[in-house]
């Protein structure tokens, strides 16, 4: 079975960057651009070679929607609930990220599981993937 990583990002260029990195590590990326795609893909591949999820914070709930809400937090909830490692990768300014950190903390408390990482300030997919694969121990 091919090992897979879900990548959730609505901006084409960023999605491609992340997917290229995932493929370079030998995984099959499952690209998603909406919350709906991501949740369906988690359901479809849970227990079928899915090793983790990289997700942006802001993207539309469904195709054609606007990326106003923090849909990534719903993906985080679904991932932790299913016991799948997840890393958030966002360009959110860490000085203004208290609300997001609080909500991630609330999800962790509710599910009893921790996110594998929350990359802030820039979409550093390489770092996010390293955190997901537990390769950044020296950081």
């Amino acid at each position: 079975m091919i090992k897979k990583i879900i990548v959730v990002e609505d901006k084409t260029e960023e999605l491609q960057k992340a997917c290229d990195l995932v493929m370079a590590k030998g995984f099959m990326p499952l690209a998603c651009s909406t919350n709906e795609d991501a949740v369906d893909t988690i359901k479809k591949y849970q227990g079928k070679g899915l090793v983790g999820i990289l997700t942006d914070l802001h993207f539309p709930v469904r195709e054609g929607g606007s990326p106003e809400g923090a849909s990534g937090l719903h993906v985080v909830y679904k991932a932790l609930e299913a016991g799948i490692p997840v890393v958030i990768c966002s360009n959110i300014d860490h000085h203004k990220a208290d609300w997001a950190n609080d909500l991630v903390g609330a999800i962790e408390k509710a599910t009893g599981k921790k996110v594998a990482g929350f990359v802030q300030d820039s979409k550093n997919w390489e770092r996010a993937l390293g955190l997901l694969l537990n390769e950044n121990k020296g950081d």
Partner: peptide
């Protein structure tokens, strides 16, 4: 439409 380009 999303995944084919993502897989090159």
């Amino acid at each position: 439409k999303i995944r084919l380009p993502a897989w090159r």
